[in-house]
Design a protein around this nucleic acid. Sequence first.
DNA 1: ATACCGACCTGTCAGC
DNA 2: TGCTGACAGGTCGGTA
Length: 290
Amino acid sequence: MPELPEVETIVRGLHTLVAGDSVESVWIGSRPQPLKSPAGVIAGTLEGKRIVRVHRAGKHIVFDLEGATRTSHAKRDVRTDRAQTRRPAPVQTAQWVVHLGMTGRMVVSEPAAKIAKHTHLIATLASGRELRFIDPRMFGKLSVHAGGFDPGGVEPLEVSEERFVALFRGRKTPIKSALLNQKLLRGVGNIYADESLFRAGIRPRRRAATITREQLGTLHRAVREVLCEAIALGGSSISDYVDADGEEGFFQLQHRVYGREGEPCLVCRTAIRRIVLAGRSSHYCSKCQK
DNA sequence: ATACCGACCTGTCAGC
DNA sequence: TGCTGACAGGTCGGTA
């Protein structure tokens, strides 16, 4: 479901709603598919921690956590207690990382709210509210990291034109496949790849290495423009995407090629084509894109 | 290195 | 009212 703009929208909402709150207890469902860290490790890491910040890395939601873990409480002895009276207690930090896959949702609910089907994790917060992870298709992933979490790739909204151009140098792969490769650029998915390529006038199948330096500069601007406009409109709601407040996005109304197979190009009226590339639907205008 | 394909899952919708 | 197949915002691993 969510690409960079949707995750950014969700993360901003979550930060407003839960930053400063603490996790008191965690319930984890019986389906193991979404768990990329063992259930006990996830629960043990979250419980007792304060949520310092919620931010985004590519398509990942990252909760920065701070505070003692349960295991550190259990291990504490008289000697460390005495040591801690002289110095501030060492602050333990961790990160809880959530990838929403295709159909994942993170919502903040009142405890009385009905538990949606396919709810896989509920974190009860000190404020009494609950943070719930729901994911019907279970392509989403939950993990915790004691050290730094490295999502790989570069942020499309931060990358310089030089580095952006260098990402594609010498690559024989179709440009769309390269845009979708999260190890290069993190956060661009199927919708925004198609929309960016349309705005840059480049066909999805075009080999990356054959694109001129100037066209890559145009693509760099197109990617950032599309992502920024989408963020401003709260993302694209195609079927069921909603943000942390349950609000839909509106960028789907701005799609120029995605989901418009057979409809006229908004620039030249040529029918928009749909092809399958790397297993994904790809939409483009054969006249405007070369 | 690269590209294609199926697998992972459930839900929805169109067509018969 | 079914049933079947195609398709869905993402990623991963195998194979040619």
